[in-house]
Design a binder for these strands. Structure first.
Length: 352
DNA sequence: GCTCAAGGCCAT
DNA sequence: ATGGCCTTGAGC
């Protein structure tokens, strides 16, 4: 069986996307005192509206009570509230020139500079705290919910495989943007993903199950009710009991989105993935940083212990799930080439 | 010289 | 009226 090289192109694509985004962020400048504005780079911003309003000394009246919602859709409804929002967001009337002189610089140069420096500091700080990283996890539950309702559900097993594949796709994009991970060489990135994808998948479902974001069971088109945890354990009914046990354990200890973020990073940078990687120092640094942040969040290192054992159980469950998929020969028969590649890498590991 | 935020223009 | 794109020019 030959597997198409699927993971690498995905990583390459994610990398170029991230670079584009970074370039966009770097290019984002200032407009009338407000940070994050650009001319002609596709970021829609009410520069023209603000400029005209100030230049022509317009004064608008609000038909309602001066608290109209100003969003992309309703922005044209009430100019008064739109202008108020501009000011509230930090746009400066003084930055619209009275004499209408073009070009050159205005007196805000130093303010822009300071603001830029501050924003830079904030973004680098962000890299080192789990709490901020947890922002990414908010989307997990809604995604899993969609995922469970996405396909025509004729057969439980192929349904579970589809769920796994769908989750795999986003995992790559997430990891590629993750601090530390994005600094690694491509080969190392592949190693870590091969070793962690299954545990991340289960952790995602565990979180969604604990907070009740997904239904307990899914109704197949043939009338059969299937527990949604089956998608978490990738279709292996014999693992369902273990799965529910872990979910209950996590629920009793408390499992927040910060904990989920920690689980995901823990899986990604776990020792098991380390054996064949080049840059062990960076991965160890990532783990240290993670444990420090997570410990701070939980209050103490001791408080992490039960969480950590739960994580280890998820990892061993993940191993069982992978073995199950291999015995079902998903890689060759049902699964996408990406899933096949993930599974074949496990087989290589086992053979050694 | 180059940058990049400000003004102007004009199709919508 | 709006907003995308082009031109300008003081400060670095």
């Amino acid at each position: 069986m030959t597997t198409a090289p699927t993971l690498k192109p995905l990583l390459v694509a994610a990398e170029s996307r991230n670079k584009d985004r970074q370039r966009g962020a770097d290019r984002a400048g200032y407009g009338h005192g407000l940070a994050g504005l650009t001319w002609g780079t596709g970021v829609p911003v009410p520069l023209g509206f603000f400029k005209r309003t100030v230049q022509n000394k317009k004064s608008y009246q609000c038909a309602a009570s001066s608290n109209c919602p100003v969003d992309k859709a309703g922005r044209k409804r009430c100019p008064r509230c739109r202008f108020a929002k501009c000011l509230q967001q930090g746009m400066k009337i003084e930055a619209v020139r009275e004499d209408r002189m073009r070009g050159g610089r205005n007196k805000f140069g130093s303010y822009y500079k300071r603001d830029r420096a501050q924003r830079m500091q904030r973004s680098s700080l962000k890299d080192s705290t789990v709490t901020d990283l947890a922002g990414m996890e908010q989307t997990v539950t809604s995604r899993l919910y969609c995922l469970l309702h996405k396909w025509p559900r004729w057969e439980p097993f192929s349904f579970c495989v589809s769920a796994v594949e769908d989750n795999l796709g986003q995992l790559v994009a997430w990891a590629k943007a993750a601090p530390y991970f994005r600094e690694l060489e491509m080969a190392d990135q592949m190693q870590l993903l091969h070793a962690s994808w299954a545990a991340v998948h289960i952790a995602d479902f565990a979180y969604a199950a604990v907070i009740g974001a997904i239904p307990a069971s899914i109704k197949m088109n043939n009338g059969l009710e299937v527990p949604s945890g089956l998608a978490a354990v990738m279709g292996d009914c014999s693992l369902l009991a273990l799965w529910t046990e872990i979910v209950h354990l996590l629920a009793s200890r408390g499992f927040t989105r910060v904990d989920l973020a920690a689980f995901r990073y823990l899986a990604l940078f776990h020792e098991d993935g380390e054996c064949r990687v080049e840059n062990r120092a960076l991965i160890r640094a990532a783990r240290d940083s993670l444990m420090r942040c997570w410990g701070e969040y939980r209050g103490s290192d001791v408080a992490l212990l039960p969480q950590f054992t739960a994580f280890l159980r998820i990892r061993s469950l993940a191993q069982s799930c992978q073995n199950f998929l291999i015995t079902r020969r998903v890689g060759g028969v049902v699964g996408s080439s990406l899933l096949a590649e993930m599974l074949s890498s496990v087989q290589v590991t086992c053979a050694r």
